[in-house]
Amino acid sequence: MYNTIPDIFRREAIEALFGTTTFQNCWQTWQPVIQQLLGANFTENEIINLGDHLSTIFRTTGGIGRGQGELSGGGTAWESLVCWYINLCTVGSRIVAIKKMSLVPNPIQDSITVNYGNFACNTESDLTLIVFPNLNDYNIDIAQLNLLNPVGQQILPLRNGKLNKLLINFLADRDFSHYEAGIIQCKTNWNDNAQIPMLWDMIYSANGFPGRNISIGRNGYAISGLTRFTYSFATVPTNQRGNYNPNSVSVKRVTNLSGGNYWGNTTTPNVARSLKEIFTNNYVNGFNTNIRNDIRTAIPHLGINNPLSYFAL
């Protein structure tokens, strides 16, 4: 159980978080806070509702100053916390949140590349979300996979205990039109950064601007070839929550993002939704049953020496 391609991908994404000094240091503070919020005999409700408290959890590691280094460090921590939470809520599904871009299949990386003339660049894709296709190869135990490359040679699922990138790229190429993808730009400060996701979402939604020599995608892959693509914004914010209302400039800038705007607090209508709402808004097609059933099934496997112990709960 929990040994499909999405399951292993999710584990590697979380292990990559714990492999960074920033997340390791923050986790020493965050873990007991999260455990207290969940309670002793938590259910799927408590896990999902962590999305209402992510800002509180984030702030337990101290206030973020205005120096560039402090802003960068805080931003990395926030991205990591959001990535951890999304993957926790999608256990057992075909949805995976990835912070480390090198883990993302090459066809997906290529599809979100923005070309300005001869210069290729990527959005500030703090997190890349992949919804793997609902096809047999993504739903069976990886030990049962038997995939052959174009010359008839078997592609090994694992290399050195990790997913074989050749396999991941092969599948993403073969089934590209069945994939869904999303970008979540994560920022600690809303006021300073709202215009950035607004402008990137405009570029993606317009599928580039040919008249200005701006295009989306490369190597024959583009977001227009995916089943669905969304662009979202997730903020703490470090500014006072009361500063935001439906008429705030920063709120208006992200109101119409294709994937929505979210924060780590409870939903405030016409301002921002709790991050827990992103699943039904953007990634509902990736659940094998539904988010509640998938989490309920996973809870017994989150403990030490269980398949999902890598979440460190």
Rank of each mutant, 00 (worst) to 15 (best):
R241K: 15
N306R: 15
A234K: 11
N305Y: 08
I278A: 09
I130V: 04
T268K: 12
A222N: 15
Y262K: 09
M202A: 13
S93M: 10
D7F: 07
N136C: 06
A172Q: 08
W200L: 04
L166Q: 14
Y244V: 13
T128H: 00
N115I: 08
G51E: 02
C89L: 03
T297W: 07
G65V: 11
P157H: 04
I223H: 08
T20C: 09
P246F: 14
N281S: 15
N285M: 06
D7Q: 03
Q144P: 02
I299L: 10
P107D: 13
N106P: 01
A206N: 10
I140K: 09
A181K: 09
T238A: 11
G152K: 07
E44R: 11
T29S: 09
S215I: 09
T227L: 11
Y244S: 14
P246C: 12
R10S: 02
R11W: 06
N285Q: 12
G92F: 10
R59L: 08
G225D: 12
P107E: 09
C89V: 04
E124G: 14
R241H: 11
P32Y: 01
T238C: 11
I8G: 02
R10V: 00
L81T: 02
L275Q: 02
L166F: 12
I48F: 00
V82P: 05
G92D: 07
V131N: 08
T60G: 04
N285R: 14
F18D: 03
Q68R: 14
T61V: 11
A77E: 07
G211R: 07
T20I: 09
W263R: 01
S102P: 05
G161Y: 06
S125P: 10
D173T: 15
N118L: 10
T128S: 01
R212P: 03
R296W: 10
H178K: 14
L81C: 00
T4E: 00
Y138F: 12
F42E: 10
Y116K: 12
V284F: 13
L171W: 06
T43A: 04
T297G: 08
A194M: 00
I14V: 14
N265E: 13
S93T: 14
Q144G: 08
T266A: 14
T128Y: 00
N115R: 13
K165F: 04
Y221V: 11
N25S: 14
V104R: 02
T227N: 13
I86T: 03
F18Q: 05
P237F: 07
I155Q: 01
D126F: 04
A16N: 13
L38T: 06
T43D: 06
M1K: 12
L302T: 00
D192H: 01
V251Q: 06
L158R: 04
F209M: 07
N189Q: 05
V82C: 09
P6Q: 03
E44D: 15
G152E: 02
Y138C: 01
L127W: 01
R296K: 15
T235V: 14
G242A: 10
W190V: 12
N164I: 00
N191K: 13
Q185R: 06
